[in-house]
């Protein structure tokens, strides 16, 4: 029997007592040989922080989950990816999540298909000991989101 997929609904604002867990942002151990730290903010179309987003990352054998703080910030410790980190963002006001990718290296065939100003939204920037990757949901500098 075939069926139509169940529609998505927003995660809403009140998942904080349910979905986050203490180890969620620490997707690999501190002493993992390829450990990197990924930090950033989630911003809305007015440039305001999104304080009630939930981010999930996935890589082979790795899963992480982190809610944003009141300033819209998140953090993950994960492994340097062979290609990219798959990232999913849920939030109040997102009736379905947005899919994006975090690349550390801009030299990639998928990135090559994107126009220059938008391509940069998928490339994390190396800062002082961590990679910064902001997610802009809408408007100027809007992150590239994927249809998967």
């Amino acid at each position: 029997m075939a069926g139509t997929p169940t529609p998505s609904q927003t995660v809403g604002p009140f998942f904080g007592h349910a979905l986050p867990y203490p180890e969620g942002p620490w997707a690999v151990p501190e002493d993992h040989p390829d450990a990197i730290e990924l930090r950033g903010r989630v911003l809305d179309g007015a440039g305001a922080p999104v304080p009630d987003a939930l981010l999930e990352i996935c890589q082979p054998g790795i899963f992480g989950r982190c809610p944003t703080d009141p300033e819209g910030r998140y953090v993950f410790r994960t492994a340097r990816p062979a290609t990219y980190i798959s990232m999913l963002v849920f939030a109040r006001g997102l009736l379905k999540p947005v899919w994006t990718r975090v690349y550390l290296d801009a030299d990639d065939p998928f990135l090559a298909t994107l126009d220059e100003p938008r391509r940069a939204t998928l490339v994390a920037r190396l800062e002082d000991g961590f990679y910064r990757f902001d997610v802009r949901l809408q408007g100027a500098g809007e992150t590239v989101f994927l249809a998967v």
Partner: peptide
């Protein structure tokens, strides 16, 4: 809440 949070650009087919 969708008004300032919905992406305005087309999704990129991956």
């Amino acid at each position: 809440s969708t008004v300032l949070r919905a992406p305005s650009q087309h999704l990129v087919a991956a």
